[in-house]
Design a protein around this nucleic acid. Structure first.
Lengths: 202, 202
DNA sequence: CATGTTCTGCATCGATCGCTGCAGAAGGGG
DNA sequence: CCCCTTCTGCAGCGATCGATGCAGAACATG
């Protein structure tokens, strides 16, 4: 049997959808959901609004797919960090990944998941809720990882994993906000190193 | 001599400018600069667009004045916290004020200075830069307070005040982001308490 | 070739964006 | 009363918002 058709019927797409999505991701990352207009997005993507709607649905769907790409690309450090053998290793990797991703020499500063749609008008509530869920998902993964660390004896048995996860996410968000404000990579990494010097903090 | 004229010449204003500014502040706080449309703002303020422009200038000026009001109102805890006698007292007050202000039972969640215009399009860059300066001002005040604490012997002489201020602001921003995501007051305060349990962290 | 399917370019939709012109209303001073 | 100044209500400005209709182009299949 045939594994797959090489070309679907109909006129082939005149652009690379992956690259277009990457360009859209950068625009959303830098300008936020509301700040990124369809004209901004399609100009950066190099396609017409018609092609954008035919390929990605609408603006909110485009944002959702850009966020997926962000999760599996720039923000993939989180999933990798959770595989570190110790809780300290996990947190060290989370902070290092956050600092690196929010202060890339080329590209937007900050974190799409934080600054993409933190406060919005009514019409953008969908994007806002999407990021609330995204942040909550990241928090839950960290909390569950800490629960496992407690079970493994890697963290003291009196540790509150939920509280500890709130602490780590708070610092990561704080790094992202400062990066969006223009604070440099080295300064943020030094701060993260200092915070890691006593671990666990509670 | 007369201290001041009771009434300026011309038709008197038909609304309370302070109260209108307070209403605008709440809209900016909840929806952000870009998410708050002129219609949203003037509806909440209870005045017409003409009156808004005559009184406050334009949208960006209105935002600037709302931010001033925010600094002297909901965010005044920062200035008060800096008067605490010890660095630990300062940070304790900052965290408590941040948690309380970002999780008020009535009113918007989060911090206007963080979520008001973290990432914007080109047309809102003025508001964005305004908040970058606002956050930088807060950071500088904290850093200078820690420098004084080092001079006073309140903090160990090897302390890096700039780094410590980055740490405190990062946690405060992280609290604000989580509050904007719907995390409750008690949970955030517990986290702040845990972070304060070992101080200074570096 | 004809036919079917999909994608693209152009023009444009109604709604909303931030903002303003203008006439009249509401006060004080003469 | 008239005159001056300031504020308000109404209407509407050009621009931009997100989103579409439609005709034709570009492919596969027969």
């Amino acid at each position: 049997m045939e594994t797959r058709q090489r070309r679907p019927i109909g006129r082939p797409r005149g652009f690379d959808a992956d690259e277009a999505l990457e360009r859209a991701l950068l625009v959303f990352w830098e300008q936020g959901y509301e700040g990124a207009s369809l004209a901004n997005l399609t100009d950066a993507m190099g396609i017409s609004t018609t092609s954008m709607y035919a390929t990605f649905g609408n603006k909110e769907e485009l944002f959702r797919k850009a966020l997926e790409r962000y999760t599996e690309g720039p923000s993939a450090y989180l999933a990798r960090a959770l595989d570190e053998p110790t809780a300290l290793g996990v947190v060290t990797a989370i902070f290092a990944g956050t600092v690196r991703t929010t202060t890339r020499p080329t590209g937007p500063n900050g974190c799409l998941g934080v600054q993409g749609a933190l406060a919005t008008g009514d019409s953008s509530r969908g994007a806002r809720d999407l990021l609330v869920a995204w942040r909550d998902s990241g928090y839950s993964c960290i909390r569950e990882r800490f629960e496992r660390a407690v079970d493994d004896g890697d963290l003291p048995p009196e540790t509150n994993p939920a509280l500890l996860a709130r602490y780590v996410t708070a610092l990561a968000y704080g790094i992202a906000v400062q990066a969006a404000s223009g604070v440099g990579r080295d300064e943020l990494q030094d701060m993260a190193d200092a915070a890691l010097r006593n671990w666990p903090p509670c």
